[in-house]
Design a protein around this nucleic acid. Structure first.
Lengths: 215, 215
DNA sequence: GCGCAAACTTGCGTGCACGCAATATTTGTT
DNA sequence: AACAAATATTGCGTGCACGCAAGTTTGCGC
């Protein structure tokens, strides 16, 4: 059920997708993100420029995809893998940390930090967790069909986004007056505290689900 | 303090901004969203095409702006206007409903429903609440400087987005198996129930803030 | 194997977003 | 009132996204 689509076809598609995003990243690292034309990427991957655009709808998307890859679906899978009796909030936090903590290509992340457009694309990519996550959460809550799971998933995605945003943000300015702004800690910490703010909502949803009969 | 920028300059800018978005909407209604070129909009507003692009970074954005306008900042203002002693979750819900319930140009909304690209832009526009809202929430929580307010604001924005998405979604298909999917009620109801899922998180943040000394 | 239908790729054309540098307008200052 | 600094507007050029209508490949039943 994971791959309904037959064989060779899907296989080839995945291959070109990978070829494209890796070419994109490689060229971006090599020549700088602004000195890479779409045509170059397409050529490097051995497809027509038009085909490139069938896979990615912006240059930045392709570059960033080399880092984010299938992280989104993995988060959902990681959540589903946790024992059903663990607290939803905890399971979620662990699942997310597990995916965002693994030290992906550090060089690439540095590159992304550099360009505003790439940062933007990187943050947007995080939004892709929403749908898989909504499904996974809904399942945990007993397939309510309610939009609650969607809201929670969207909120979690938003929280992740905020955490990533803080993390990417160059420590830049000499801290605004009052010294209130924390110099942005490690990513795991940022993620944890962002998600902590949502924990009560997750708990509440879980509790309601348990009072309802499981299907 | 609301408008630091002096007078004539900002006034003119606002004027052309309004002219642009209204021209965009009018032309879109008149000729259909796909039969409006950027040059037409610019000409109708009496500015160069290049200037148009200094105000809006996509055709859809301009059209949608005619409906969403300054709704975002108003939500924050509406929140700030509520008495500080009301429950944060309630104040927020009221503030949002207040802004999204007023029957804006119905004709335009119908148009937006029509085109996928416009729907997309409309949903994206809702994300603009995030920043003003974060500021307003942070103030209610006692200017913590913590990212908690940001996370909550982002979550609220996400919830609003989900509600709008359900609302825009044409009742289309004959309901999936089991009859679990509700035929998308009224917008106020959708917003209310979406925000209800976040209420526990808002309560918790508020409670923590009250235990901390106000600055 | 054969051939048809569905799915993917490609080239072309159009409209668009946006950086850049020159020009025009506004504003605060003397 | 005149000037200089700040800020907006405009034209131009480049690269890009994407609809469309061929052409090509893959999958499947016979």
């Amino acid at each position: 059920m994971t791959t309904r689509r037959t064989g060779l076809r899907e296989q080839k598609k995945q291959a070109t997708r990978v070829a494209l995003r890796e070419a994109a990243l490689r060229l971006a690292l090599q020549h700088g993100p602004d000195n890479v034309r779409v045509d170059d990427i397409a050529e490097a991957a051995g497809v027509s420029p038009r085909t490139y655009n069938n896979y990615f709808s912006s240059r930045e998307q392709a570059i960033v995809a080399a880092v984010t890859a299938e992280r989104e679906s993995r988060v959902a899978a990681a959540l589903a893998a946790r024992p059903a009796r663990t607290r939803l909030a905890d399971a979620l936090t662990e699942a997310i940390l597990e995916q965002y903590t693994e030290p992906r290509d550090h060089e690439a992340l540095l590159l992304i930090t550099t360009s505003p457009t790439l940062r933007e694309a990187f943050l947007d990519a995080a939004a892709a967790v929403e749908h898989p996550l909504a499904a996974a959460i809904d399942q945990r809550l007993g397939d309510t069909g309610t939009p609650v799971a969607r809201v929670l998933a969207a909120s979690v995605a938003a929280a992740v986004r905020v955490a990533l945003q803080q993390w990417l943000q160059p420590p830049a300015a000499p801290l605004t007056a009052g010294g209130l702004v924390v110099p942005s800690g490690s990513l795991p910490d940022l993620l944890r505290s962002a998600l902590a703010a949502l924990a009560p909502a997750l708990d509440a949803a879980e509790e309601q689900a348990q009072q309802r009969p499981r299907r």
